[in-house]
């Protein structure tokens, strides 16, 4: 099974489409192909409504595609959903913890659902509670937990049956900055253990920080796919140099514009702004050119995924 799909890939999506009936019908996913390699953290970055959640829902057997295939760990998830569920762990956007059970019971019963013996389930639950620093909360109920803790429990539960791939849908939605960083550390820890992680996000910092590779998604299609660094160096991504000058110097603009890699030079109230493709040695050239013209200060802004997204779509990620 799945040999026609990308070999070596642990998650392989081909020609995925999903149209929701309605007036007019909504084309949520419009032809997505992608491969996720074992052990990597793969991100789907895009604005709300781009089709990320639908893609994850199909991968995790909670939605049926209109067309296309998803193969995870050599199992076709559309044809064999219950077998595929053994290979996947899911943390959805919202809290799905069992409100009638304590944290300990939530994880324990999850293990039993996946065929663990009681002793195995007990041992695994204890291990996860320790690993995720949840031991103190073992007897609390989900309603008593903060958003960050509830999410930590959800991640612990999702990996309790040792899935090969963990899907995180908007993991930092609704988290405070501290919880978000704690969550990143957890995901990086799982990555070191060798779990493949697929996550969706509309926070470019998150995609940049966490993902080995990512796809920028909009209107149900993948616009580009690469490592965060390569994406930032790609399609018109620019480093911005803000120069503060003592006073305006007439021919400085022209001189800076001649440097190789520089694509635009603009006046600013405090001096000059240089936009340039990322290339080695440029910063030295800019400084030496501007120094004789009374350079007071300089700030460098590296290209971000947000600038990449804007270049690709003409829109802001959060619009």
């Amino acid at each position: 099974m799945g040999t026609e799909n990308g070999h070596n890939a642990i998650v392989s999506i081909r020609g995925l489409r999903k149209t929701y009936d309605g007036k007019p019908p909504v084309r949520a996913v419009d032809g997505i192909d992608l491969d996720v390699h074992p052990g990597e953290i793969y991100g789907l970055l895009g604005p709300n409504g781009a089709g990320k959640t639908t893609t994850i829902s199909i991968c995790t057997t909670r939605a049926l595609p209109t067309a296309g295939s998803v193969v995870i760990d050599n199992i076709d998830v559309v044809k064999h959903p219950s077998a595929a569920r053994r290979s996947i762990g899911v943390v959805p956007q919202y809290n799905t913890l069992d409100r009638s059970c304590t944290i300990w019971e939530n994880i324990h019963f999850h293990c039993l659902f996946f065929g663990f013996s009681r002793a195995e389930a007990r041992a695994r639950t204890q291990q996860l509670l320790d690993q995720f620093h949840l031991a103190e909360k073992a007897n609390s109920y989900p309603a008593q937990l903060s958003g960050g803790l509830a999410q930590r429990v959800q991640i612990a539960r999702a990996i309790a049956h040792r899935p090969k791939v963990l899907f995180l849908d908007e993991p930092s939605a609704g988290l405070d900055p501290q919880s978000r960083i704690a969550m990143w550390e957890i995901v990086q820890g799982l990555h070191r253990e060798g779990i493949t992680v697929v996550l969706t996000t509309h926070y470019m910092e998150e995609a940049d920080e966490l993902c080995n590779r990512l796809a920028i998604v909009d209107h149900g299609r993948i616009l580009v796919e690469d490592t965060p660094a390569a994406l930032k160096n790609s399609v018109g991504a620019q480093t911005i140099y803000e120069l503060d000058l003592h006073e305006p110097v007439p021919d400085l603009q022209q001189k800076l514009g001649m440097l190789s890699g520089v694509t635009a030079v603009e006046d600013t109230p405090r001096g000059i702004r240089v936009l340039a493709r990322t290339c080695d040695g440029l910063i030295g050239d800019i400084v030496s050119t501007a120094q004789s013209s009374g350079l007071r200060d300089m700030r460098v802004t590296e290209p971000t995924l947000e600038t990449v997204f804007i270049r690709l779509t003409g829109r802001d990620l959060r619009e």
């Binding site: 995790t60 219950s82 053994r86 809290n95 799905t96 999850h110 659902f113 996946f114 065929g115």
Partner: peptide, 15 residues
């Protein structure tokens, strides 16, 4: 409200 059912559905069992 709670969508707890979404997790139950992820059991390795036909839905």
């Amino acid at each position: 409200i709670t969508r707890e059912i979404d997790d139950r559905v992820m059991c390795p069992l036909p839905t």
